[in-house]
């Protein structure tokens, strides 16, 4: 028979694995000009950046730096390079600002 702490651990593990991302209404980004751009990141990074490859709450400067690095590294054909190369520097800044405010 399973010991109670094991049962708790099992339930918790199940809960963590099964817990879907639930979005929150965030007044800071409700009508943010980068919202529909950033929404293109949600599929792989979670709604509003809350996911397994989380972006929510990252500093804007850091996101911009990483995105521009991938944007200009055209020799590298990794999946994020493909996406970084699709946006202007201004759009990258808006996307970064959006996630930094989550």
């Amino acid at each position: 028979m399973m010991k109670i702490p094991d049962m708790v651990a099992k339930v918790l593990l199940t809960a963590v694995v099964a817990l879907p991302a639930v979005a929150f209404a965030n007044p800071a980004t409700l009508n943010h000009p980068g919202r529909t751009l950033a929404a293109n990141c949600f599929q792989c990074h979670g709604t509003d950046g809350y996911g397994m490859e989380s972006l929510a709450g990252e500093s804007a400067a850091e996101i911009v730096e990483e995105m521009l690095e991938m944007k200009w590294d055209t020799a590298n054909k990794d999946i994020m390079n493909v996406h970084a190369q699709a946006y202007t520097d201004e759009e990258v800044a808006l996307i970064a600002d959006y996630f930094s405010k989550q």
Partner: peptide, 16 residues
Amino acid sequence: EEMNKWFSNLMSDTFA
């Protein structure tokens, strides 16, 4: 491995 993360996030972004 990336594929499994992609699927999980995509389905959460769509259904949760």
